[in-house]
Design a protein around this nucleic acid. Structure first.
Length: 876
RNA sequence: GGGCGCGUAGCUCAGUGGGAGAGCGCUCGCUUCACACGCGAGAGGUCGCAGGUUCGAAACCCGCCGCGCCCACCA
């Protein structure tokens, strides 16, 4: 077993065993949209797991005669690489710094401040680091035995990917499917970039519910000269027994109370809402309230989304505390009062100016002065103190645990900040996308529900712009008018022939470089695309869509299979379906095959830290690639699987067993005869044929785990019973030349089938044993055909032959048990056995008597008719 | 709150209408002529709980409990 990986992967590479034939037609091809792993991290056991599943399918299809298109991609663009470069070199990208062509990164990252470098220098470092990562990844995949065509490798930051991505963007822009908008957007305050709905995750965080009193705006509060509720509140607040005045609500309504977990957003409050049917607050609807501390007049309105059971039934709408606020803000046409800056701190706002009116401007400024410049958390602590002092905080804040939305790679909750971003239309295509989900074949089928949940839950179009650096730029510039205003509504698209372009360094046609940023000149779009905006085009990138002189795409697209894990259905799967639908009016692939995760033995998702302890290369070195693949292939489609080195040892045993069984079967003993004459041999071939049919069906259904299980089951049975039963005929050929010739033939048929059935799972050992006696690679050999095996059995086998094998094996088992209980060796001679069984089975056994006698070292075999099967054994 | 999946031997899991299974682990035995990186044998389970359908349920239906995941407008 030692050294098989190195030996055969070298041969496969030399012979181009997995090279895609570019002359193949679409009907001949089986194409795979391989997931490009993120190269900024390390591969872990989970990758080995799911990529093995894909490879097993690829190898099966290849043996079925398909020309397999199996590229590998590296996902190197995006935030993960930026972060890795920052940490690895101790640098930071600063777009205002000029390019330094002689820049070399420090040998050791600085302990202190990160080094500010230009965007082009930063991108160069990203490219350098990912290239070395990619080499390490390729080495691992080769050791694992992935049958990838390494000449079709792509990267998501490469020139082809950039061109395909930019070309696609320009087409969507021309067709109005891509648009730019100044709008409230999900925002990560640490990375200072927009993020998409798909990149959010909920995390439980402790918080507190604050009950806060608003004042009722009286008629006289109209202008700046009106009464000062804040002062009033200060005066009256501590009193439990408040006189009816501006702060008292109207008839039947007590204090105007809201509950909030985000009191720091009170200065951003634009309305109070209640449910239309909520009698408690109906008297207020149509009127106005005044915010505490800031004295801002806000309308009290009704909206059906308000849930009367929550809090006081009266809710404060801020711009913006959460996505519901955005909904209300949009549907009720509320104004914007934004207090949060892009850095997650409360920004300066002009109290008293239009939009920031207050009945007490001085008081508002004073209160806000306590908050400005502070982070959300700091501001929250401070405003609670202020509200408490003013008496507008009712009772103590009540601790609550609540789910908060985070950017999946972020460390602080996302905020909603108004900014200019690019969007791709999704919501308008909801029904079409659901129909695509029905058209797609899902394995396992229930995974479709996740897709449908996601599509049905889309709340807005896909925000694709990111305020980052290492990604595919938007290939557009903007005119700057004479006054220096950037005319965003008039993007200048790049010429197709110039792609890929980087508008931050490239200049649009008709302009000179000096005009960048000048009145009358131009500005480049500063953003890069969401990594999914490029990854959603992997079928087109791998297929070289629109690239020179290539009709590759027509031979591979739409692809046959998209393998991926179930956690990225809402991102990679969804966006790929969207792009293909919009640009090609087609599914990107016929089949989606979903893998599960690898779990720790304690059933938790394998974490990165734990995954790094057991590195994949170490696993492969310790157990061998075939053994690791065996473990992976036991994980059923879509099902999470526990990490289990024990299973790898079993895989190793299977591989060794195949080696030894093949050695026995192919040993240069009697030559194979022309036909099978023994019932035992014929019964074996019949079982083999049935298993081939069953295993092939499983593979056609993408259930590789079942295919392996059934192959393995018959193989172990073959080794434990059939091989033992036929040893007599095999070795003592003189006594029965015809029987010896028959068994030789059966053995050759059997190992030929077993080797090929196991080849997708154990490619190295199978290639080794195949090379002993067959020309060419087993991985290019034809998949076993049950019809060939049935043809061996002309005239057709009858049930008695199968029963002969069954009964002979059962009797042998009883004989072994007797020897085991007597603590004798298995070769211990048996004086006589007496088999009790039904007449039919006894008659069948006659066909296998010779083999049974030799296998058990049995002198005499007697038969006794009985309804109960039993074997009496008399050891010598 | 809605949805999906799961609950079978100590562990990992197969089994979808008729006999409760596999591997690992455990115990015992065996230098066996393909294999000691092996071979043989054994112990071990009220199939989550409770109803129903059926001649018959681990499987089908209803409810409940537990676990995991996905989704949600979680003030």
């Amino acid at each position: 077993m030692e050294g098989l990986e190195a030996k055969w992967s070298e041969v496969w590479e030399r012979d181009g065993a997995y090279r895609f034939d570019r002359t193949a037609t679409r009907e001949q091809v089986f194409s795979i949209d391989t997931p490009p792993p993120t190269v900024s991290g390390s591969l872990h056991v989970g990758h080995v797991f799911s990529y093995t599943h894909t490879d097993v399918i690829a190898r099966y299809q290849r043996m079925r005669g398909k020309v397999v298109f199996y590229p590998m991609g590296w996902d190197d663009n995006g935030l993960p690489t930026e972060r890795r470069v920052q940490n690895h070199y101790g640098v930071r990208c600063d777009p205002s710094v000029d390019y330094d062509p002689r820049f070399t990164p420090p040998a050791e990252p600085s302990e202190k401040e990160p080094l500010s470098i230009s965007r082009p220098n930063f991108v160069e470092l990203c490219l350098q680091l990912t290239e070395s990562d990619e080499q390490a990844f390729e080495a691992l995949w080769r050791t694992l035995g992935l049958s990838v065509d390494w000449s079709t490798t792509y990267t998501t930051i490469g020139r082809v990917a950039q061109r395909v991505s930019q070309r696609s963007f320009l087409e969507l822009l021309a067709r109005g499917e891509a648009y730019q908008l100044q709008a409230p957007t999900l925002w990560d305050v640490d990375f200072q970039t927009a993020v998409a709905q798909a990149e959010l995750e909920d995390r439980e965080r402790p918080g507190a519910m604050h009950r806060v009193r608003f004042a009722r705006a009286s008629e006289g509060d109209g202008g700046a000269a009106g009464a000062a509720p804040r002062g009033e509140a200060e005066a009256d607040g501590p009193e439990a027994d408040r006189p009816g005045g501006a702060n008292a609500a109207g008839p039947g309504v007590g204090d105007i109370l809201i509950e909030t977990t985000r009191p720091e957003l009170i200065p951003a409050c634009v309305a109070l809402l209640t449910h239309p049917d909520d009698a408690r607050w109906s008297a207020l609807v149509g009127g106005e309230a005044l915010t505490p501390l800031f004295g801002t007049r806000v309308p009290v309105l009704a909206h059906p989304l308000v849930e009367p059971d929550k809090g006081t039934g009266l809710v404060m709408v801020c711009t913006f505390g959460d996505l519901t606020d955005v909904t209300w803000w949009r549907e009720l046409s509320l104004p914007v009062r934004a207090v949060l800056g892009e850095d997650g701190r409360l920004r300066e706002v002009p109290w008293g100016a239009p939009g920031w009116e207050s009945v007490d401007v001085a008081g508002a400024r004073a209160s806000y002065g306590e908050l400005v410049g502070r982070s959300v958390n700091q501001a929250r602590r401070r405003i609670v103190e202020l509200l408490s002092e003013s008496g507008e905080l009712i009772g103590e804040p009540e601790p609550v645990n609540r789910a908060v939305k985070f950017f999946e790679k972020g460390e602080r909750p996302v905020e909603i900040v108004t900014s200019r971003q690019w969007f791709f239309k999704t919501v308008a295509h909801r029904e079409e996308l659901l129909a695509r989900g029905v058209e797609l074949q899902w394995h396992p089928h229930y995974m479709r529900a996740r897709y449908e949940d996601w599509v049905n839950g889309l709340t807005g179009d896909w925000c694709v712009s990111r305020q980052r650096f290492f990604g595919v730029p938007f290939p557009v510039w903007y005119e700057i008018d004479g006054s220096g205003t950037v005319l965003y509504e008039r993007p200048i698209p790049a010429e197709e022939a110039r792609l890929p372009v980087d508008p931050s360094t490239d200049v649009p046609d008709g302009y000179a470089p000096e005009q960048r940023g000048q009145p009358g000149g131009f500005a480049g779009d500063p953003d890069v695309m969401d990594t999914w905006a490029t990854s959603s085009l992997t079928p087109q990138i791998a297929g070289m869509a629109g690239e020179d002189a290539s009709d590759l795409l027509a031979r591979v697209f739409p692809m046959d299979m998209r393998p991926q894990a179930h956690d990225i259905i809402r991102t990679w799967l969804f966006t790929t379906v969207l792009r293909s639908h919009l640009e090609r009016d087609s599914l990107p692939w016929r089949v989606a095959a979903l893998s599960g995760w690898v779990l720790d033995p304690d059933r938790k998702k394998m974490s990165k830290s734990k995954g790094n302890v057991v590195t994949p290369m170490h696993l492969l070195e310790e157990h061998g690639a075939d053994a690791v693949r065996y473990w992976a292939a036991n994980g059923r489609p879509g099902t999470d699987t526990a990490f289990d080195p024990q299973q790898m040892k079993v895989g190793r045993r299977l591989a060794v067993k195949l080696l030894n069984a093949s050695k026995f079967a192919l040993a240069d003993l009697p030559p194979a005869g022309e036909r099978l004459t023994s019932a035992i041999d014929r019964a074996l071939i019949a079982r083999l044929a049935a298993t081939v049919e069953d295993v092939t069906r499983s593979f056609e259904d993408y259930d590789y785990a079942r295919a392996l299980q059934h192959t393995e089951e018959l193989f172990w049975w073959f080794c434990d019973y059939y091989l033992e039963l036929v040893k007599g005929r095999r070795y003592d050929s003189a006594g029965d030349p015809e029987g010896a010739a028959s068994v030789s033939r059966a053995l050759r048929l059997a190992v030929s089938v077993f080797q090929r059935l196991l080849a997708p799972f154990l490619p190295f050992v199978c290639e080794e044993v195949w090379s002993w006696w067959q020309p060419g690679s087993i991985h290019l050999a034809q998949w076993p055909d049950a019809a060939d095996l049935w043809a061996e059995l002309e005239p057709a086998a009858d049930a008695t032959e199968d029963e002969a094998l069954t009964v002979a094996a059962e009797v042998l088992s009883e004989v072994r048990k007797a020897k085991s209980e007597a603590r004798r060796p298995m070769r211990a001679p048996v004086e006589q056995i007496r088999v009790h069984d039904t007449p039919a089975r006894l008659q069948a056994l006659q066909l296998g008597l010779g083999d049974l006698r030799a296998a058990g070292a049995i002198e005499r075999i007697e038969s006794v008719e009985s309804d109960e099967f039993a074997v009496e054994v008399e050891l010598a």
